[in-house]
């Protein structure tokens, strides 16, 4: 059982790291603000979510696990709203890189 949980942690955290990597590459390589934001939100939402899911079996108490999930939810909220605000500003100031 514990080996299975370890395997789950390794797979989920690795997948999370992959999304962070992909998001960073996208941020550096995509041509304009909107597509860069699109890449960035994948790192925040999916990447952090997978890392949290992977760490959940390793927490010392359910409360600590709940805190981890809350951190993820808050980052989801902040990330979604910050990218909306940036996107709106970019949209209004016209299409430029």
């Amino acid at each position: 059982m514990s080996q299975l949980l370890d395997l789950w942690s390794i797979v989920a955290v690795s997948a999370g790291v992959f999304f962070f990597l992909a998001g960073t590459v996208g941020l550096l390589r995509f041509p304009d603000t909107l597509t860069r934001l699109h890449a960035l939100t994948k790192a925040d939402n999916l990447g952090l979510g997978l890392v949290v899911l992977g760490l959940l079996p390793r927490v010392s108490s359910p409360l600590a696990g709940l805190k981890l999930v809350c951190v993820w939810l808050l980052v989801l909220l902040a990330g979604a709203i910050a990218s909306q605000l940036i996107a709106r500003t970019a949209h209004r100031s016209g299409p430029k890189a």
């Binding site: 808050l74 909220l77 902040a78 709203i81 909306q84 605000l85 709106r88």
Partner: peptide
């Protein structure tokens, strides 16, 4: 707006 939404949602938390 989104900012007003966040400013209503986040302070209690």
């Amino acid at each position: 707006g989104m900012l007003a939404y966040l400013a209503r949602l986040l302070p209690p938390l």
